[in-house]
Design a binder for these strands. Structure first.
Lengths: 145, 145
DNA sequence: GTGGATGCAAAGAATTTGCAACCAA
DNA sequence: TTGGTTGCAAATTCTTTGCATCCAC
């Protein structure tokens, strides 16, 4: 997953970080640019490896991801195993995933009609509602084998 | 959460375990009976503590829960923090949760109309489909403060 | 009686933290 | 210049495993 990241994405990453009033450092730029370039979600280790081996310490990845999460730049995903994964939180492209139980391939699903349920929950007095929705199954490829 | 478990639930637990052709041991009965009695979901440690301190080793809880999960007696839940939790998988009462971001209270939601999406995924060639759906928000109580 | 289950302790992973050096603002 | 950030290593926490003993069948 180690790939070259276009300059444009570095600039976008830098802007996103600045807009959250966080200081812009190399590791932060690298990590966010990596997540902008690649569709996730990725584990901490995958992100660390994806940056190329000497980009920054694994501990720094942990620290940056937590920071990004708190700043709403990154979203945590749970895909059925025991590993937490992270991806860039694109406000304009809310989506969910389908995970193959066999090969673990992840595919995106834009479709989501959860708003009715959220309204119901709002009626119960909850505010600030979000949700997490993931599907699991055995994909067509794995079914052929 | 340490509570006395009615004899009836022990019998039910025993039957459930037997029906999966697993051997019936004290720890297994205790753990499953605990999950039958209490609405979860619970972490490994909560289950262990809930049994009363000398019921069985924490390692045994891990082993039993994994076993129950594979036997479809127990369901793993991810509620937004980094802790995995488990609850009895009642085939007749499929449900989801609403978690308060502040006080972490968990409330049940029976409502679920995901079947249309599952059909869509089936059409893509996936089989054996399940999903996970959890909601997060700030509950009425916490909003008052 | 025998194979699987358990307790215990130790190993292994995953994650967090303290601290000195470094860097962005 | 200075407070926040990083790398490194150690500490902590979480989970798994090996093995002798025990128990369900």
């Amino acid at each position: 997953m180690k790939t070259t990241v276009p300059k444009k994405l570095f600039q976008k990453a830098e802007k996103l970080i600045k807009d959250k009033s966080l200081s812009v450092t190399e590791p932060r730029k690298n990590i966010l640019a990596f997540l902008l370039k690649n569709h996730g979600p990725f584990s901490m280790e995958e992100i660390h490896d994806g940056l190329g081996k000497n980009a920054c310490d694994l501990a720094t990845v942990y620290r940056c991801i937590v920071l990004f999460e708190n700043s709403n730049l990154v979203e945590r995903r749970y895909l059925g195993d025991e590993i937490l994964r992270y991806e860039y939180k694109d406000m304009d492209h809310h989506h969910h995933h389908i995970v193959c139980r066999i090969c673990k391939s992840v595919s995106k699903m834009k479709y989501c009609f959860i708003s009715e349920i959220e309204q119901m929950i709002r009626d119960k007095g909850y505010s600030d509602i979000t949700h997490s929705l993931e599907f699991f199954g055995v994909c067509a490829k794995c079914n052929q084998k």
